[in-house]
Amino acid sequence: MVKDNLALYIEHLSFTYPDQTSKSLSDINLKINEGETFGLLGPNGAGKTTLMSILTGLIHFHEGSVKLFGNEIKNKDKALNKLFGFVPQDFSFYQELSPKENLEFFGAWAGLSRAETKKRTDELLKIIGLTEVKDKPVMQFSGGMKRRVNLAIGVIHQPRILFLDEPTVGVDVQSRHAIISYLKELNEKGTTLIYTSHQLNEAELLCDRIALIDEGRIIANDVLANLLSFHNENGLEGLFLKLTGKAYRD
């Protein structure tokens, strides 16, 4: 496995779904440094989820190159999956199991030893505030509690880079605050965060750098201050509407 300070290096990535003729992603080029918090923003159907799916190996691509810490992911080396964690937008766990059982199951699946799994499970249950209900089935939980479980499973194996697809959608203020605080803590400890969301104020708060994606292309990519200054805007929402337009996308 290659060592590289670049957490993610995407070169000329294009992708077309088998049943479509137009490209869903077109000539994407991105460099994300290790330890960075990177926001990938865009309207619905812009290509964010497709890009996330490619980066996490859910979709296989042929055009272009994606390197994770210097390792080409096109080679489908499963060992690379240890480097990243993924927090999908949908709840990605077994609803009939408890948070403890889910964490233990996915910990084992991530290749942790029994002792490591137990240690990380106890730690994470405490961090996400679910120790008291660790043995209750997740299906009985509120949306916010489920989001926290979703996040905890994504970081059980302490990945170097974490892909977050709208991690706070549909949660209350308290859960959002807890999730964002934990993500900041993770980032301070060195975890690279790649984050997509429609919560623009949250992105402003969390991200070092932001890329706007629309119709499968990167249309802006810089630190927020530079972007606002270049486009003569006061906030991210104004910039977003200026670059992507006001027309409905879905």
């Binding site: 996490t56 190996g57 859910l58 499963k78 060992a79 999956n81 240890k82 990243f84 993924f86 999908p88 949908d90 709840f91 990605s92 766990f93 077994y94 609803q95 996915f106 699946w109 991530a110 290749g111 499973i153 194996h157």
Partner: peptide, 18 residues
């Protein structure tokens, strides 16, 4: 059809083991 499958696919262990 559930999200857990997506998670399994993104983890280092091969789905064949499942």
């Amino acid at each position: 059809l559930s999200g857990s499958f997506i998670r399994l696919k993104t983890l280092p262990t091969n789905y064949l083991l499942s």
